[in-house]
């Protein structure tokens, strides 16, 4: 289990050219820019689950992942991986494999060279699995990664991550820029392997649709602050999506609001109206007061929740 206790991460004096547009630097007493990348984040990642980190660019997902891997030292708070601090601790790190959001550092490698490189660091490296997956994905072993397509590079890195056979596999923006068929194929392989060996997968994305369908649990960060961290199903219950139909006329937003409902989103297609609302005890009763021929609840995906949360945040 990974325990994250009150983690704050501040990048001191981050140079101006290093700040992304999305970064919101704060200033200290001397007016030096200080970027609070994470602000008092507390959560737990249980064993054997697939945990999704969602949030927009610059929200702090990658920083949190790097803290878990011991790449950064937290400014305050603790991160315990199986009850041990991961920073500067080879024992804890030997259970973690991190795939960052870039593959540029591997461009000089061939897949075979990567295998030799990583097997030196991870003695438990699974050569049989590596060969099997490379064959399945049709990845050439002796061609430089610089000649690979972006998708092939990501496949290669994920393949290495799986072959290192660590208890925790951390993938940062692993599916970014992949076409849907390739994304589905990698997802399938990862899911199968993770479930088979009961490992924990932590996966991040700014595009919730990419990972929403594979996570057991999900957390969301906004500007370094934890918005929620829960079971995917529990997260979804905070919002509900309804489909309303009136054959006589299109139900207007005023009509809905007159029923005492404040929709987070209203959309219409012909006579069919869809609304997303925050859950409340009396929502069904209020909906009944609207004249409809059809009123049904339809599934809400994670991406929709994500968008509405962002809107709510901006309104604040």
């Amino acid at each position: 289990m990974i325990e994250i206790n009150n983690i704050t991460m501040i990048f001191d004096n981050k140079p101006a050219h290093k700040l992304k547009k999305s970064d919101k630097p704060v200033f200290d007493e001397e007016m030096k820019p200080r970027e609070k990348a994470l602000d008092a984040v507390t959560m737990e990642i249980p064993d054997g689950c697939i945990y999704g980190f969602v949030g927009f660019n610059g929200a702090g997902k990658s920083t949190l992942m790097r803290l878990i891997c011991g790449i950064y030292k937290p400014s305050s708070g603790t991160i315990l991986v199986d009850s041990e601090s991961s920073f500067d601790n080879p024992a804890a790190k030997s259970n973690i494999f991190f795939v960052n959001d870039e593959t540029i550092e591997y461009t000089d490698f061939t897949l075979d060279k990567m295998r030799r490189y990583y097997s030196g660091y991870y003695p438990q490296f699974d050569h049989e699995l590596f060969e099997r997956l490379a064959y399945t994905l049709e990845l050439p072993m002796n061609r430089k990664l610089s000649t690979f397509s972006k998708g092939m590079k990501r496949q290669s890195v994920v393949l290495i991550g799986l072959a290192c056979h660590t208890k925790y596999l951390i993938l940062d923006e692993a599916f970014d820029g992949l076409d849907p068929s390739m994304r589905d194929m990698i997802k399938k392989i990862i899911r199968e392997e993770i479930k088979k060996r009961k490992s924990t997968l932590i996966i991040s994305s700014h595009n919730v649709a990419e990972i929403g369908d594979m996570c057991d649990k999900v957390m969301r960060l906004t500007r370094g602050k934890l918005v929620f961290a829960d079971e995917l199903e529990n997260v979804k219950t905070n919002y509900r999506k309804f489909q309303l139909v009136n054959l006589e006329h299109t139900i207007s937003i005023e009509e809905i609001e007159a029923a005492g409902i404040k929709p987070e989103k209203y959309s219409q297609a012909g006579k069919v109206v869809r609304i997303i609302v925050r859950d409340s005890d009396d929502i069904s009763e209020k909906l009944r007061s609207i004249e409809t021929v059809l009123c049904e609840e339809i599934p809400l995906d994670l991406e929709e929740i994500f968008v509405y949360d962002k809107n709510a945040e901006e309104v604040k």
């Binding site: 891997c69 011991g70 601790n89 790190k93 030997s94 960052n100 870039e102 550092e105 991870y122």
Partner: peptide, 18 residues
């Protein structure tokens, strides 16, 4: 002095001294 390399190498199972 190279961010992607730091990501890879500092995540490896070694202490900083090692």
């Amino acid at each position: 002095h190279d961010v992607p390399t730091a990501d890879v190498q500092m995540a490896m199972p070694l202490s900083s001294r090692e």
